[in-house]
């Protein structure tokens, strides 16, 4: 019996312990709550909506927030792509994909252009997405201000008052110390001129893709129990100073050793034998497409 058959098995001889899971795993009450919260998130771009996050068969911190969003809106006719660090074949992406397919029967793809739903951890695909697609991002830390303030009560108040002075001070101190903003990934952004938002641990390379996009971006933090969103055509601006600009990662003079791309985010691989460094596209689906696979 495969996973899909097992999930659908009816209750065993009246003892009530059989799986008998429903479409998209979550029960109706859970789905409705998540739907209500998603709509609120879309209506208040960048604001973190608290939700009663459910436990899933995937561990907390492994994409349960993104997964709950996906499960509350997925349709049997959807074409799903799941990536982890840009890679379709990464173990966690495969595990999540396998689970969603088992409880919904959706078709899977690695082609960004073909997908209707994409669930991702730490990357936005290189290929521009359209208004017919939704990108669902898995989020470990929904609170961008957590770097400067550990207490949720305090950060709530800071957001309510749009009091972001400590965040700006943090950037300023960084510059004093290093003469540069040293934030790598999870670069804080201002959404629609109001909320400072954590864009999830995507590299800075992906931040410009969120700005005035065609696509709806939904963010789910399962462990921290927050949902937030960036609607299409919404300004998403990284925090920067006039004389210290936000910059994406520098891959100057480097190219993908496989497809030759010079305009993608690259993974740096250390070749065991020689200690030589090689670069490959982080977005494996995009790289495959270029290689004609």
């Amino acid at each position: 019996m495969n996973l899909r058959e097992w999930m659908g098995r009816k209750k065993r001889d009246g003892c009530g312990n059989g799986p008998d899971y429903s479409f998209a795993f979550l029960d109706d009450v859970s789905k409705r709550e998540i739907r209500r919260k998603i709509l609120k998130a879309v209506a208040i771009p960048g604001y973190q909506v608290p939700f009663g996050s459910r436990e899933l068969p995937i561990a907390r911190g492994w994409g349960t927030g993104g997964l709950q969003i996906t499960l509350s809106l997925v349709l049997p006719e959807d074409i799903l792509k799941v990536i982890d660090q840009g890679c379709d074949g990464s173990v966690n992406a495969v595990n999540i994909k396998r689970f969603i397919q088992a409880v919904t029967g959706v078709r899977l793809t690695t082609d960004t252009g073909e997908a209707t739903l994409i669930q991702t951890r730490h990357r936005v695909p290189e290929e521009p997405m359209t208004d017919a697609q939704i990108l669902i991002l898995q989020v470990p830390y929904p609170e961008a201000l957590r770097e400067v303030e550990p207490s949720e009560r305090v950060t709530r108040r800071m957001h309510a008052e749009a009091d972001y002075s400590r965040m700006w001070l943090y950037l300023y101190e960084d510059i004093v110390k290093f003469d540069e903003i040293t934030i790598g990934y999870r670069y804080p952004v201002t959404v629609n001129g109001r909320y400072i938002m954590d864009p999830s641990p995507i590299p800075r390379w992906d931040i410009p893709k969120l700005h005035m996009a065609e696509t709806l971006f939904l963010f789910g933090a399962g462990r921290e129990k927050r949902i937030y969103a960036v609607p299409p055509h919404t300004p998403v601006v990284p925090l920067e100073f006039e004389d210290f600009r936000f910059r994406v990662e520098n891959f100057e003079g480097k190219a993908c050793a496989r497809c030759g791309a010079t305009d993608t985010y690259l993974d740096e691989i250390i070749d065991d034998a020689t200690g030589r460094r090689l670069f490959f596209c982080s977005d494996t689906g995009f790289c495959d497409k270029r290689c004609g696979e």
């Binding site: 479409f23 349709l75 709806l216």
Partner: peptide, 18 residues
């Protein structure tokens, strides 16, 4: 797995709302 038409109709309605 049982997929009832009602379950998918609800998801479809929500996608439309979204």
């Amino acid at each position: 797995m049982k997929i009832t038409s009602d379950e998918t109709a609800m998801q479809r309605t929500f996608r439309c709302l979204l």
